[in-house]
Design a binder for these strands. Structure first.
Length: 874
RNA sequence: GCCCGGGUGGCGGAAUGGCAGACGCAAGGGACUUAAAAUCCCUUUUCCGAAAGGGAGUGCGGGUUCGAGUCCCGCCCCGGGCACCA
């Protein structure tokens, strides 16, 4: 490929931007201009370096940032590092290298890679969560949480992972195994710091409405918060007047259908309710349940287990006694840890009742309870007693009436519950923020803000202590301290904060990264917040985004920030998969096995035989119907799909390599041209070559082939009407598409323009210079070089964005397609200002149309101004 | 099981209810070249036809409409998330 000197150009302009601090956002920006804060989810600087997924979102935000600058906005576009976390610590365990050393090295590599891609970050604002000056304020925010009663300690059964020697958050455990490494996880009670995110559940839910976020992400957060409306109802314990069991239900209307009650194994009233005869069975069941890991609880979900306590509870609506069971399908951590079971109208209770032969009583008509539970709406039946009746009502009306009645009788009350749990906020790890807390006589006491940062001490070994405590617990000299207030001996908290902590507020620090007196200056915060555009992967849909919103609201209540929500608009970039792979399967004898007979584990369906997978070249493949087949044996189907990039599959694309071969501009442009930003899409090296060819053609549009100097065709000539039209059509399309983040079609519009412009001779400067400016956000290095070749000095980064003049888009003659009965039959060319009747007459008379009208009556004539004619005949 | 996305040429993908397939890739043909690469030009949804032209066509089946890839109803498939939360 004869190519433009991208390597030289890119290095030259990267140096220029660096030296001139072209993208520095002034500390005191010109307040007369509008602001735009465009943020990427900052990366964890892993040892593997950048992968091609990173530049996808980063290019998108960079295009927006560069565009907004040219539109006259003050743009804040920073980058930093989410640098605490397990990998560096695990590496330290293996090699003895201090995580700080590894982290610094990885950050240097990431920074160099990002700079090589030409992103317009203000590098003066770079922060890492591991910087003392940064985590000082993370600790300060923890103190705020503590002050406001939102941080507390609890002895909670946590996810203890013996292999990692640490406790994991619920969300770090997947199918009973650790998210990292896939090690088994068991439950173990430990003293932990918790954050009361549940106190903010309602606001976190309600404030989602106004956010310009993908509906799917909002929905995931809603599900995670899991709000439900119902009632708490008290059931008296039979034979023990005054003793009550409180249950939570969303279906108080089904109280008459409650045929038994279930307590969670951990429920405090289990002992009191258990009859002597059942004591051994209940104790055995509770012990078994306590030993069950989450893995076992989920694995056993198909078969429900439980034991009868021998005790009974009295249904408050009809004074009937119902048996009380203990079963682990009821969770102690949700609601009251006890339920009234209505097998006729709840699938879980239905399964349990069937298994233990408990009666099923229908109280809502409309289903067939001999087959399955009916959870839909219907008319209430069998729901009356001498005190109250809800028979004949619909479900919502019945809920309302019975709830009122319960409240009136003092037997129950309305209650809203959330699935959301408090946030387990401590880790037994070294490489994290130390808690600014000491224990005096065993009681926690926060350090004063002046004592921050509480610096992470040096440690000899990174091994977890093994008891579940962090490596910090092994440094006696650090752990032992004195209370600054009283001088009493004290011990330090040895847990550290989870990785989420640092990423909960980094967007605030970017606003004022060097402030030594505050996390962020209030005036600056008011100017820049909220973040106008936040781009990152959908894997953070719930956790990072929910935690950050929570902290932000706490800071809002504390008067630290001025907006109730941090991120106004959120966009998730889709994953980039590896190249499309065609795979042929063979059995042990080497015979090909057609792909539809191969299961997900690469085994043959039926025989279960493990098959050999073999990559096949594209030219050996043919499409037949909706399947791909092996060309030499067309009866054998081949699987055709692309996979997530992974080392083990060997399909990882290295961005450095792409930059070396085609340049950063080509990588940027390709990632944007692949398809819509949000979509999952497969990589194609041929596609990279395609956009690279486009950039080469752009280069040749402006330069003379041999000399690399300005092309002689570039002339001060006045552009023709057609040339103006081509230019302004592109300006319109590119501008609108950047605003709508449709970068793929913006690039297509520039390609169309180039295809035209290449044919021009001469090439009027006035029509070409704006093209360079439009290209600049996408391929900034090439654009800068062309701009300077065109005789301009300095960077084009702050040149005004080309203005659209709609007048150039107006055409004198328009082409209008003509349909007959909805089928395209021809086109007519008419003056743009032609009258409807003239257009319709021309349409009827058109050579290709007239035959389709012959001998028929035109029943209706439809004309959509400037777009289409449809003649309905019959 | 439930909740979101999504199914359009050989491939990635375009199309305010109004010309389906923009743009790019791949493929085929041609020009330039001693040759190749690079570059440039042409063809390329499919079927019938030498052509002109015509038929079919956006996962499947219905519907609304002058007109549906787009809206409505029912299904199938793929991707993601959640999953004893009472």
């Amino acid at each position: 490929m004869a190519v433009y000197p991208f390597a030289e150009i890119e290095k030259k302009w990267q140096r220029h931007w660096d030296e001139h601090k072209t993208f520095r956002t002034p500390d005191e920006p010109d307040r007369a201009r509008p602001k735009f804060y465009v943020l990427d989810m900052f990366p964890y600087p892993s040892g593997a370096g950048l992968h091609v997924g990173h530049p996808e979102g980063y290019t998108a935000t960079d295009i927006v940032a560069r565009y907004k600058r040219m539109k006259g906005f003050n743009v804040l576009h920073p980058m930093g590092w989410d640098a605490f976390g397990l990998p560096a610590e695990n590496y330290a365990l293996e090699t003895g290298t201090h995580p700080g050393v590894t982290t610094a090295r990885n950050i240097d590599r990431f920074r160099a890679q990002l700079k090589a891609l030409g992103f317009s970050y203000d590098w003066d604002r770079e922060v890492a969560t591991t910087d003392r000056d940064y985590y000082r304020w993370t600790q300060w925010i923890f103190l705020k949480l503590y002050e406001r009663g939102l941080a507390y300690q609890a002895e909670v059964p946590v996810n203890w992972c013996p292999a990692l020697g640490t406790v994991l958050a619920n969300e770090e455990v997947i199918d009973g195994k650790s998210e990292r490494g896939g090690h088994p996880v068991v439950r173990k009670p430990m003293r932990q710091w918790m954050l009361k995110i549940t106190e903010y559940a309602e606001r976190l839910l309600k404030d989602l409405e106004a956010l310009d976020w993908p509906e799917s992400i909002k929905e995931m957060q809603r599900n995670w918060i899991g709000r439900s409306e119902g009632a708490e109802v008290d059931f008296e314990v039979e034979g023990r007047p005054g003793e009550k069991v409180r249950v939570y239900t969303t279906r108080p209307d089904t109280l008459w259908g409650a045929t038994y009650m279930v307590l969670a194994p951990e429920h405090p009233l289990v002992d009191a309710l258990t009859a002597p005869a059942q004591r051994d069975a209940v104790r055995a069941y509770r012990e078994k349940a306590a030993r069950k890991s989450d893995l076992e609880r989920t694995e056993l979900q198909k078969v429900k287990t439980g034991v009868f306590t021998g005790g009974h509870a009295v249904n408050p609506v009809n004074r009937k006694a119902i048996p009380v069971w203990v079963a682990d399908y009821v969770l102690i951590s949700y609601g009251t840890g006890a339920i009234m079971a209505v097998p006729a109208h709840d699938q879980r209770d239905y399964e349990f009742a069937r298994q233990f032969d408990i009666p099923v009583v229908e109280v809502v008509s409309g289903g067939d309870i001999s087959k399955t539970a009916y959870t839909g709406d219907g008319v209430l039946v069998n729901s009356a007693s001498e005190w109250v009746s809800i028979n004949g009502l619909s479900v919502p009306a019945a809920k309302e009436k019975i709830t009122r009645w319960l409240e009136g009788q003092g037997l129950g009350c309305r209650k809203v519950n959330y699935k959301l749990r408090d946030w387990l906020f401590s880790r037994q790890r070294y490489w994290g923020e130390p808690f600014p807390v000491i224990f005096v006589d065993g009681r926690p006491q926060p350090l004063p803000a002046e004592a921050l940062p509480l610096v992470l001490p040096e440690v000899e070994s990174y091994k977890p202590s093994g008891t579940g405590e962090s490596p910090l617990a092994t440094i006696e000299s650090w752990v032992q301290t004195t209370d600054p207030a009283t001088g009493q001996p004290a011990r330090r908290e040895t847990n550290t904060m989870p990785q989420w902590a640092g990423s909960c507020w980094y967007y605030l620090r970017f606003i004022d990264p060097k402030n030594g007196r505050a996390a962020v200056d209030p005036a600056k915060e008011r100017y820049w917040m909220p973040v106008d555009l936040y781009v990152g992967g959908a894997e953070h849909a719930v956790l990072h985004l929910l935690y950050a919103r929570f902290w932000h609201k706490v800071l809002f209540d504390a008067g630290v920030v001025s907006t109730p929500e941090p991120f106004r608009k959120l966009v998730n970039q889709g994953m980039i998969l590896g190249e499309m792979e065609y795979t042929l399967y063979r059995d042990a004898r080497g015979h090909p096995v057609s792909a539809e007979r191969v299961d997900d584990n690469e085994c043959e369906q039926g025989t279960g035989e493990k098959l050999q997978a073999e990559r096949v070249a594209e030219e050996d493949i043919e499409k037949q119907g909706d399947a791909f087949v092996y060309r030499v044996q067309p009866n054998v189907r081949v699987s055709a799909r692309s996979f997530k990039m992974s080392k083990s599959r060997g399909n990882v694309i290295n961005p450095d390599e792409v930059v070396r071969l085609y340049g950063a501009d080509s990588l940027r442009l390709y990632e944007m041209f692949m398809g819509p930003l949000e979509q999952v899409k497969p990589w194609s090296m041929k596609g990279v070559e395609g956009v690279h060819r486009f950039l080469n053609r752009v280069w040749r549009l402006f330069t003379a082939e041999e000399t690399g100097t300005l092309n002689g065709e570039i002339a001060p000539a006045e552009p023709s009407r057609e040339q103006w039209r081509a230019l302004h059509a592109m300006i319109k399309k590119v501008t609108e598409d950047i605003e709508g983040m449709r970068f793929n079609t913006a690039i297509a519009a520039m390609m169309e323009f180039l295809n035209d412009a290449q044919k021009w001779s001469p090439r009027p400067r006035a029509a070409l210079e704006p093209f360079v400016l439009l290209l600049a956000p996408f391929a900034p290095h090439l654009a800068e070089e062309l701009w300077s070749l065109l005789g301009h000095s300095g960077s084009l980064a702050l040149e005004p964005w080309p203005a659209l003049n709609e007048a150039f888009l107006v055409e004198d003659v328009v082409e209008i397609p003509v349909q007959v009965n909805g089928k395209l039959r021809g086109r007519i060319r008419v003056p743009a200002d032609a009258k409807q009747q003239d257009i319709l007459a021309a349409a009827r008379a058109e050579d290709s149309v007239a035959p389709h009208l012959a001998g028929k009556t035109v029943r209706k004539e439809i004309y959509i101004a400037g777009r289409l004619v449809n003649l309905v005949v019959g």
